[in-house]
Computed example of a mutant assay.
Amino acid sequence: MPPRQPIPRKEPRPHTVSIFDNLLFSLSTTLPILIWLIAGLLLRRTKRISDDFIADGNYLVFTWCLPTLLFLNIARAPLTEVWQGDLITYAVLFTLGSIVLLWFLTPQLTRDITSRGVFIQGAFRGNMGIVGLAMVVNAFGASAIPLASLYLAVLTFLYNMASVVVLQLGQGQGVAPLRMLSQMARNPLMIGVVAGVAWSLSGLPMPDLADNTLQGLADLTLPIALLCIGASLRWRSLKGNRLLVLWATLFKLVLLPALAALGGVWLGFRGEQLGILYLMMAAPTAAASFVMARAMTQWGNLAAEIIVITTLFSLFSTTLGLFVLRLTGLI
């Protein structure tokens, strides 16, 4: 009787990520943002949050919490190891190119050219410090914070300068470089960034008492900011300017993030790099754009409407974009 042949063992099938897994990954990144926004909206509707709370919360976030968060994330990071000049240089050049493109397209979209600066700012200036950073953390964890913070630092500087320029030029005014630099020097976000870079380069250790105290303040950034954004949403403000709001939303949430991601893929960005690039570019319009638009132009309502619509629809557009990037194995 011939010897019995052993039954060949089946090799384990390689693990494959299903479409459902990719969808869960995308939703786990964007749904927490939606939950915080809805919580803020409900608290405002039930009069648990007042206009005074929103004003004070925004002041606390933009003057103390967010600058502290930026300072800590940069101060703790060895800049020579975290710095990725190719990614940040590409983001800067892409943003500048987007602004130039929008400048020449705007006359085709509106008869009142004085709205040009507000429209352009709403189409390119993303809420990276709140929504963008939150989505990066949700998608890639705390390990992505140092690179995302450096990206945020450089692009925040660019956004502030570019916004002043386009708003002034859009109103037919000249640009005052000294005044612009003075405003930048007093910007709390830039103070936090510069202080973080200086501390990191100094090589000094962060004392535990200071680290724990500042971390507590930094941890307040996302919850308070997202609650205030949700509580600030006003359906009744969505009046007029529909065409410009539609085009600004399309550029901010779809066209510019998609083009940025395609260019990044062509340059070889993958994984965390590509994810940070896409999520920061896909963030909705920054709330600070309304403050500047109201102070420098008569188009404050247009700025507010762009913020509301992009904030609401970014959750869907970003989920779809992440899903596609994840499904194709690019992140």
Rank of each mutant, 00 (worst) to 15 (best):
L253Y: 07
T29G: 05
A142V: 05
L158W: 00
Q121Y: 08
L204A: 13
L109C: 01
Y59Q: 11
E272K: 09
C228A: 04
L253A: 12
L222C: 01
V175C: 04
L320K: 06
S18D: 09
S18H: 05
L79H: 14
Q183Y: 06
R9A: 06
D51T: 12
L302V: 12
R9Y: 01
P205N: 08
E272R: 12
R186I: 08
Q171N: 07
S28Q: 10
G126S: 15
V61E: 15
A282P: 03
L214G: 07
W266D: 04
L277Q: 13
S232Y: 07
L209M: 07
L327K: 09
Y90G: 09
I38Y: 09
Y59V: 08
M292G: 13
T95E: 10
E272N: 07
T110F: 10
V136C: 13
F53Q: 08
P107R: 09
S26N: 07
R116I: 02
T16V: 08
A55M: 08
F20I: 12
A148G: 11
M180T: 11
T46H: 10
V194Y: 11
G170E: 05
L155I: 15
V131M: 14
V82H: 01
N73M: 04
V61I: 15
F313P: 00
T80V: 07
D21Q: 11
T221V: 13
V194D: 03
A195H: 08
A295Y: 06
T114W: 08
A283E: 06
I54A: 12
D52H: 12
V131F: 06
L267P: 01
T213V: 11
N58H: 14
G172P: 02
A303K: 02
R111I: 02
S115N: 11
A91F: 07
Y90L: 15
Q168H: 14
S237R: 08
T297G: 13
G85C: 05
T318G: 00
A75G: 09
